[in-house]
């Protein structure tokens, strides 16, 4: 069960998408999200979808990986879809059962909303699938660098994020171990209703937290031993550099934005 978590999962590769500067990918992802929220028509959704499909093809990420990333959110998508289906009022009544009436507009909104969420998730998945967490946090640190002038602890935040990501697999492994140890002594995690299940998780969390604190303490000592003293005077093994492909990708992104805004203006 715990192994299914794909959060922050990274598939190494050497494709163009992998080699793009993380800053480019971060900016493009933000642009892409903005695009999705500007898009209202089928035509503009088509444009966004096409962009996504092209990026996925370029990145050679397998469809299976993307579907497995979408799987945990099926319920969210369904609920959003259903709510929109029932609560949108319009002119063209499709059918009416008891007090629930479904309009043609409702179907349209429901489908578009579900699509929007799916496209949103797939787009962000593509970012984490093709960018290593280190690159991601490096990119974020560089992008947010101007905020340092406002005393925002940018370096510390990015260091915390990359360490959190680094320890996810370690803590998952640990959780598995604790679960097995407790199962061996008769604990049940898979039976009962949702409240009983939640209650069974409690004795799992206590040892997990204790061990996480111990790890944090040891890690801090190890980091200090390796001369860590904050972001000041720090250099990098891999220096981020914007290449031609980055500028091309950013141009494509901006062009798409213009296109979608135009489509919206034209009412298509």
């Amino acid at each position: 069960m715990l192994k299914d978590i794909t959060l922050g999962q990274f598939f190494p590769g050497t494709t163009v998408v992998h080699r793009l500067d993380p800053r480019t990918k971060l900016i493009l992802t933000v642009l892409y999200i903005v695009l999705l929220f500007i898009a209202v028509s089928w035509a503009s959704y088509g444009v966004v979808f096409l962009f996504l499909v092209c990026s996925i093809c370029l990145s050679r990420i397998r469809l299976k990986a993307i579907l497995s990333g979408l799987k945990p959110l099926v319920i969210l998508i369904l609920i959003t879809g259903l709510l929109n289906l029932f609560y949108t009022r319009g002119e063209h009544l499709l059918f009416r059962v008891w007090k629930i009436s479904v309009y043609w507009e409702g179907v349209r909104t429901a489908v578009l909303m579900a699509l929007r969420i799916m496209l949103l998730i797939t787009g962000t998945l593509l970012l984490t699938y093709t960018t290593s967490p280190i690159q991601l946090t490096d990119g974020l640190e560089k992008l947010l660098n101007p905020l340092k002038k406002l005393r925002v602890p940018v370096h510390e935040l990015s260091m915390m994020m990359s360490i959190a990501l680094r320890f996810i697999p370690t803590l998952i492994e640990e959780t598995d171990k604790i679960m097995n140890a407790q199962k061996a002594r008769g604990a049940e995690f898979d039976t009962g209703n949702i409240f009983q299940k939640a209650k069974a998780m409690l004795p799992l969390l206590v040892p997990l937290f204790i061990s996480a604190f111990r790890r944090a303490d040891e890690l801090a000592t190890a980091m200090e031993s390796r001369c860590y003293h904050g972001g000041e005077g720090r250099t990098k093994l891999k220096v981020l550099r914007m290449e031609r492909r980055d500028w091309i990708a950013l141009t494509v992104g901006v062009l798409l934005l213009v296109l979608v805004i135009l489509l919206r203006r034209l009412g298509l």
């Binding site: 990274f10 290593s132 967490p133 280190i134 990359s162 360490i163 990501l165 680094r166 370690t170 790890r215 040891e218 890690l219 190890a222 980091m223 390796r226 001369c227 860590y228 003293h229 005077g233 720090r234 250099t235 990098k236 093994l237 891999k238 220096v239």
Partner: peptide, 24 residues
């Protein structure tokens, strides 16, 4: 486990020299 900082082996090995300000 509790002394490896990075998600990639070479990035972790680079952590010390990075802190010391060694040129890339």
């Amino acid at each position: 486990d509790n002394q490896i900082v990075a998600n990639v082996v070479e990035d972790d090995v680079a952590f010390g020299p990075e802190n010391m300000g060694v040129p890339s």
